[in-house]
Nucleic acid binder design. Structure first.
Lengths: 212, 212
DNA sequence: TTGAAAACAGACCGGGCGTCCGGTTTTAAT
DNA sequence: ATTAAAACCGGACGCCCGGTCTGTTTTCAA
């Protein structure tokens, strides 16, 4: 039996930084969930990617489901706000606003060379129909999204004289087209479909007199 | 120690029926993949649902991936043909054809009370970006779908005098809207979004003079 | 200074996963 | 009748999953 080997002195002391650690975990989880999917990524994958111990991971997120819900609330929702809600609200015209959003996403895709898809759609399709909590979380993001678009549409020429329900339908149609285009972009690994959607939606917005 | 119990005589002899057995496996796999997702369903789930032994399952589909690819080729592809390609090809007018397809899907959803989503999109979103073989399989179905829609558009009034590429773009736009509407229908568990898409697309088709 | 809670580490567990294997039965060609 | 392949059975195998547990370190309030 070998003699006990002296344990080396700990050189670097640990520093507790729960905020930063939580951010690292969410960063890793968000990235892995989007590129590989929720069920296809294990907790150990998250631990490795975030370089976090199992204890720390479990301390901040008790279960995998908690982590998934946190990703939706803290990452996917803000992603939708940054890429869609804020730009379209501040755009000088709805048509150019939507076109710029879609084209810039397409450019990002082609620049990066790969498509992981729409963050919201990815988790929605995989988790929405299976689990009620996930569905509620996803649904609230969709609701915020379509409400913002609807508000913007109401500020257009045709929007001022249309019923609130019709504005919502138009808003949802924009989401339909974008989501579907993103799905195809993901399977084709190209931004082409987003540019096509941009072009067609631009004309659709003009034809419907959504000016301004 | 109890005495050996005489093994009861096998009463019902086994009958080899590989075609029927393969069908049962594909039935179960298709259903489970659509309702719960590919990664969320295990091989044992398929065995239980199809009431098939592990040996039989492995005999017909060596790996889970093989089973998934078979579901795409033999089930999802024909599902797209039955619900989209054939009806739109035989429709007297593009506008009513598309409207009928979307509305009948919406009716089916509300009658059934639950939405598992578009079969193709479900597997596309979950598997396309992760695995090259899955992506190719999904992509070929999309290609067949948009080609059929493009051919139908070319037979409309505006279609006869437009470039082939524009017809394809219009065809893809229909797919975009449908896919996105189905995604939202899945998270909202309602057919409403499909009816909205039906209404908006109907007008869009008319505005673009896709008559006939 | 002290005590307790929060933050983190890492080994560990039962279970379920996908897959494979030896053996048996059925089928069909010879 | 013989034989080989195909079809099917049922369980074992090894791995890894999500989650738990014990213990240590850090932080901060009292």
């Amino acid at each position: 039996m070998p003699v006990a080997i002296a344990k080396p002195k700990k050189t670097v002391p640990r520093t507790n930084d729960p905020t930063h650690m939580k951010k690292r975990i969410l960063d890793a989880a968000e990235s892995l969930f989007q590129t590989n999917g929720y069920h296809a990524t294990s907790m150990h994958d998250v631990m490795d990617a975030a370089r976090v111990s199992g204890g720390a991971l479990h301390h901040h997120f008790a279960t995998k489901k908690d982590l998934g819900l946190a990703v939706i609330h803290d990452r996917v929702a803000v992603s939708v706000r940054e890429t869609w809600i804020d730009p379209v609200r501040d755009s000088s015209s709805l048509a150019t606003g939507v076109r710029n959003i879609l084209n810039s996403i397409a450019d990002g895709i082609d620049r990066r060379g790969s498509v992981s898809g729409c963050p919201l759609n990815n988790l929605a399709v995989e988790l929405a129909s299976a689990d009620a909590d996930f569905r509620k979380a996803v649904q609230s993001v969709f609701a915020e999204w379509q409400a913002a678009l609807s508000e913007r549409i109401k500020r257009t020429r045709a929007g001022t004289r249309m019923k609130a329900n019709d504005a919502l339908t138009a808003a949802r149609f924009l989401i339909f087209a974008y989501s579907g285009a993103m799905n195809l972009a993901k399977t084709e690994q190209t931004g082409d479909s987003l540019r096509q959607a941009s072009h067609t939606l631009f004309q659709w917005i003009r034809e419907n007199d959504f000016v301004g």
